[in-house]
Design a protein around this nucleic acid. Sequence first.
DNA 1: TCATATATTTAAGTAACTTATATATTGCAA
DNA 2: TTGCAATATATAAGTTACTTAAATATATGA
Lengths: 114, 114
Amino acid sequence: MISTDLIKGSLKTIVLKLLKENGRMYGYEITRKVEELTAGQIKLTYGALYPILHKLENEGVLVTESENYNNRIRVYYSLTDKGESVVAEKVREMKEFIESLQNIVNPQPGLNHA
Amino acid sequence: MISTDLIKGSLKTIVLKLLKENGRMYGYEITRKVEELTAGQIKLTYGALYPILHKLENEGVLVTESENYNNRIRVYYSLTDKGESVVAEKVREMKEFIESLQNIVNPQPGLNHA
DNA sequence: TCATATATTTAAGTAACTTATATATTGCAA
DNA sequence: TTGCAATATATAAGTTACTTAAATATATGA
């Protein structure tokens, strides 16, 4: 498992990117998808996920549709137009972040920045 | 610039990895090296850096040597034996983290995990 | 009958940061 | 010679994105 400190700041971006890739999803589905994609390395707790979803809905980034499945409520979330542009920006930022981290953990010895 | 939320949890690992690569360094030097390696994307503020260094010293991960240069105090930090193994573990974790993030932002459509 | 999986919600607590402030020297430009 | 930028370290106060924990409810297989 990866320490929660490391993962913390990236949860919102992860949720948004999954919604972009998969269209509408419900909360429980999102947690399982994250585990699947990261081979169990990243786990989204419900205490983190649902507040994130509610906040993004309040901000107009997501919209919900509640449906009934097997007598259980499912709240499906999907991106608004605003959400689409928010995702694009967040993903761009994350790619820059990944690149920066790679420059740290895999420094190129030949490349002298002096 | 990358949002501070994203960067937050990785600062300690970044500091430790730089010390591993460069041997002993002083605080101010570390902040500049991070900016250089990340093309200005990641900035280590002093309010973050010095508490991190002090804490790592208290934990026996780092040791200090204070020297005088141009009438300014420089506190050089370097890894202890314990520090070396801490870095190894932290870097391993960060590589897993990067890999997980890449699986999110660059999903492989052909690869079906169902 | 009981544990596990499914499904959502929210309150309370933690800690890694940011922001701001303090202090002091060197060196360059106007 | 005045004043700003760069160099160098330190720490107190505040923020916030999380974690942990507790609550609620149904379906399903052993």
